[in-house]
């Protein structure tokens, strides 16, 4: 596959809250020699329903994702959580369904989280001519880390960004307390977890927090802003693609129209 056809699974949060991550993903995939398409009939991977134990709706949403994406060589998402849903949980949802089980498995095998896809599948070893002056730290989002083994890949690429200093975050592998609907169902517990996380982030002295999942980033950035912190938060893809002109997560736009 010289130029594999990649279907970008945008993820609902990126679609709704931070399109620049989607554009960054497209740019990085194209730099890695992929031909990128964005199916319009995608909404969400179905995790809110799945995590609530609603298998009927989860299956129905999963079927529409499978239909929209099964013809691509690869399916790539700028999120370990959503990619993990497609990869680890879709096969489980259909394990007793002779028609959908092979289709779910076929999709799962070709689904990847963005950064690990770039490094592990496309062999990307560096980003060229990309610079960003920052003292950064990195949070490992749980699903990417534990379901998909995303750990070294973002660090390897970030090390090639000019001007970026990456300081490891103590407890980088501890959950930030987002957990999808968890943060709505148990707001007080979620708050304690994210407060512990932002205390660790602040202690590193970093002025930039990076991660690979927008849900976690919105949680941590939202808490940092509430605490009056000046630490900015961005998705790792924005930095790797050099798309850092616009405001960081939760920051106002500098001037209209930027």
């Amino acid at each position: 596959m010289d130029q594999p056809r990649v279907g970008l699974f945008v993820t609902c949060l990126v679609d709704l809250f931070r399109p620049v991550i989607g554009f960054s993903a497209v740019a990085l995939l194209e730099r890695a020699g992929c031909q990128v398409e964005v199916p319009t009939d995608q909404t969400c991977c179905g995790q809110p329903a799945y995590n609530a134990g609603d298998l009927k709706n989860s299956r129905s949403i999963a079927q529409s994702v499978i239909r929209a994406f099964e013809d691509f060589d690869y399916i790539v998402a700028p999120s370990g959580s959503c990619a993990g849903m497609l990869r680890a949980h879709y096969p489980d949802l259909f394990k007793d369904d002779p028609e959908w089980s092979p289709r779910a498995n076929h999709l799962a095998q070709r689904t990847h989280e963005l950064i690990s896809f770039l490094v592990d599948i496309r062999g990307m070893a560096s980003v060229e001519n990309v610079g960003f002056e920052a003292q950064a730290t990195y949070h490992d989002s749980c699903s990417g880390l534990r379901e998909l083994g995303v750990k070294a890949q973002p660090r390897r690429l970030l090390a090639t960004v000019e001007g970026l200093d990456l300081n490891e975050l103590p407890g980088a592998e501890t959950c930030c307390g987002f957990g999808g609907t968890f943060c709505i169902k148990y707001p007080d517990i979620s708050n304690r977890m994210v407060a512990d996380k932002t205390a660790d982030i602040t202690a590193t002295g970093a002025d930039l927090l990076l991660a690979g999942d927008l849900g976690c980033l919105m949680n941590m950035a939202g808490k940092l802003k509430r605490e009056g912190s000046t630490t900015q938060a961005r998705h790792v893809a924005e930095v790797l693609a050099g798309m850092t002109e616009g405001p960081a997560i939760g920051e106002p736009e500098k001037a209209p129209g930027t």
Partner: peptide, 12 residues
């Protein structure tokens, strides 16, 4: 539930 404890980043 969200904004009791943290800000909600606005969409683009």
């Amino acid at each position: 539930g969200w904004t009791a404890h943290r800000d909600l980043p606005a969409p683009s």
